[in-house]
Amino acid sequence: MSDERYDANFIHRQSFIELDARERAKALFDPGTSRELAGPFDRMESPWLPMQGVTPQADDGCVVMKGKISGQAAVVVALEGAFQGGSMGEVSGAKLTTALDLACADNEKGIPTSAVMLLETGGVRLQEANLGLAAIAEIMASILTLRKYAPVISITAGTVGCFGGMSLAAGLSSYIILTREARLGLNGPEVIEQESGVDEFDSSDRALIWAIHGGEQRYATGLADALVDDDTQQVADAVRRFIAKGVPPVHRSSQVALYRNRIAALDTSRQWEPKELRATWGTSSFAEEKQ
């Protein structure tokens, strides 16, 4: 499993984080095989934003591309973190759900089709509130259906991170790929500070935020399957590796007894140093690597 980590010494690196959602999606396919579906010229924009005085985007911040990865059919759905914080609205949610459902239907027809989700999102778009939350519930349902047939891979590269309800979508994925610039969690620091007080979480403490939500910590505690550099080739290679692996024997979110026991073993009378968890939660590969 030590091949899950890469050395950082590539000379010709192309930043993945600097790409927009469309470029990110395209970069994962075999060259010349991808095609965008329901693109900007189909103008599936949010009907709810203009009525609240907010400028919509022609693709609602969600890019759907279909094509081939390692010669096999795949769909990539990329959220644009620069538009409304990558938040899920009615249309962006429907795009993601439908893409997963269509991949599922193809698998049922005997056409193996994997799905990749590029999650840069704060979760529900509050201007669409209940329709955003409902969309996330439907996305989760569609991930559960598809992942029986084909791997559903989620990638968070940065800089937005993956928070709110969409962190549950990541949690349901077959594989999670993160960079060191990625953050993954249910509640962001500001929300926790607001709801539970600054003593619970000081949202200005950058080191604490990265120690808890950062990609390196998530990987070191066995909560992500690959930690890659901010390099397009590394991200694309990791996707290919997980597609080749196929559906995992047991999904992480189905390992209830394992995680329930881990939670039961925690001392809740104090706050923890996040690194403490690495010893007990870390993947065996990580533990081996440290030796």
Binding site: P50, A58, G61, A82
Partner: peptide, 26 residues
Amino acid sequence: VVGSGDLEVLLEPADAGSSHVIIRTS
């Protein structure tokens, strides 16, 4: 991208004898 300080442009061929521009700005 419709992100802070930025904009998106959709440009399409038209038939009429003139160009039409529609701007939606925050």
